[in-house]
Amino acid sequence: MEPTEPAVTTAALLTGGSHRLRKNPRIVGVFFLVGVLIAGIDFLRRGDPVPTASFSGIQAGTVSLRFGLLVDVVFRQSTPISALVDLQPRWLVWTVALELVRGGALVIASVYAYTQLLDETATLASAARYGCVMLVFTLAAVDIDSGLLLGLPLGIVAVYLVVRFAPVSALLATGTPIQSTFRASWQMTRGHGWSLFGVVLVVGLANHLLASIPLVGSVGSSLTAAVHVAVITAFVEHTST
């Protein structure tokens, strides 16, 4: 007799995710390699003459939740869009290529992991679709410094949206068209908000804390991304049955 899946609680989702990773250790290995690649690119970017924005971890006295609509790995050195203006061609190519390599590696790892765990087939189209959405989110990302009065309500809205669209990454990776993804995600998460909020809290906090480790923070963040994929997979499977 097949063991029955427990109810959709935060603990059950985390346990389910952990169970799935133990059964598929290759996924942990893939995200570990992605983390090493990202840490290596961080190292290269620290030494080159193109400006970077450094990740502010717990050393800066801040704690935040790092849980994205798509699978999120912290780049300790990222490139502000404004730093690309007036770059000499060779440094523009270098910088964009490095960003595409690590972004592409994250897309491939995410699509591979979801399709493996959900027993689906990875396609070039779904990977491209996932990559396009990630690019749009990256370009549209804004850093709002609004103080507590405005920041708290904005933060609550942001967490609410992350919770309601938490399955978006899994749906995109397994071939759901973009326009259907958000609607389906909204319907799937109805009634499961608090459970998913717990997931966002645990995984998002772990992501921030592990990413704060000097030099190899991206490896820790990438391993958290594997947990992200596994937990969302557990949620999608729960709500699909």
Partner: peptide, 14 residues
Amino acid sequence: GHTIGGQAIAATRW
């Protein structure tokens, strides 16, 4: 940097 629609964008380098 650049100006689009009268608004300065990407003015800072670091």
